[in-house]
Design a protein around this nucleic acid. Structure first.
Length: 283
DNA sequence: ATGGTTGTGGAACAA
């Protein structure tokens, strides 16, 4: 045998799988931004939240020819709504209800055999309730809803079927001190109150999910994925929060390569207040 | 527990 006969002893090249999560805040208004992002970043999968679009109005035609024609979506009129766009065929569409509501806040899919080494990975796309302004369950039903939703997410995590899985979405909680521009000033602000951050970290830990952003970029480095519309100069002020997340099941931990906030899109014309966040795995 | 802005839908409500 020549020295070169087995130059690649590990077999075929590994597959790089990229999955983006993006709260788009109206998929119809921003379908051109979706296409622009897909063209620029070319992820394998794009998970959207806040599509604000009934299913019969989802802009499927605009995606024709984009290379992302495998689409699962679950929408409703005016609020919420989630969607998964994929280069690979998707299997097993599932929409879980939470808090006994019809809200479209979850959708999942399994990557089909065409995804090669990524086949069989389950994708879960979540949109956790924002929770209103007052961080008090008794005074604010929206905050109560958020806490109840997180509790149900915890229960689901405990009985989730085994196997490789990726959980992404706008979880509307910035769990760690350096996930916000000022930990002290945001301790009473919904998205960073201890009851929320502890709930999210607890449910993540109990189900052994890996927080990929912090796996690769530990504290104290700041990471933000959202900047309020209400800041006159979001870029200069940079008062961001890390609300958008990508978690992987423990069997995928060693495949995590990159977690990137595409901040540029926050500066596009008529932007979403969230930036797209892309996870890269090497399988 | 302020106000600031954006989206849906065409007033109020959600974020």
């Amino acid at each position: 045998m020549t020295p070169f006969a087995d130059a690649n002893p590990t077999g075929p090249d590994p597959l790089r799988l990229t999955v983006t999560t993006w709260n788009i805040n109206s998929v119809r208004l921003r379908i051109d931004s979706v296409l622009r992002f897909l063209d620029a970043a070319k992820p394998d999968v794009l998970c959207l939240q806040e599509t604000k679009c009934p299913d019969d109005a989802f802009p499927l035609k605009a995606l024709r020819g984009s290379g992302y024609e495998n689409v699962f979506f679950a929408g409703q009129k005016g609020y919420n709504g989630v969607a998964i766009l994929s280069r690979f065929p998707l299997l097993t569409r599932c929409v879980m209800p939470f808090c006994e509501r019809q809200d479209a806040r979850h959708i999942s899919a399994v990557l089909g055999p065409e995804a090669g080494a990524a086949a069989g990975i389950a994708l879960h796309d979540f949109y956790v309730p924002a929770g209103g302004d007052i961080p008090d369950r008794a005074l604010n039903p929206k905050f109560a809803h958020k806490l109840d939703f997180l509790q149900e997410l915890r229960a689901w995590g405990g009985k989730r079927v085994a196997g490789p899985a990726i959980l992404v979405g706008d979880l509307n909680v910035a769990p760690l001190e350096h996930d916000v521009w000022s930990h002290k000033q945001l301790l009473d602000v919904v998205s960073h109150t201890p009851i929320e951050t502890e709930a999210l970290e607890t449910l993540r830990g109990e189900a052994d999910w890996i927080d990929t952003a912090r796996l690769l970029t530990p504290e104290p480095e700041k990471i933000y994925t959202w900047w309020s519309y209400r800041s006159p100069d979001w870029q200069a002020a940079n008062k961001g929060r890390r609300l958008d997340h990508a978690w992987v099941s423990p069997d995928l931990k060693d495949t995590v390569r990159k977690m990137e906030v595409f901040r540029e899109a926050r500066g596009w014309e008529r932007p979403s207040d969230h930036a797209p966040v892309t996870l890269t795995l090497e399988l």
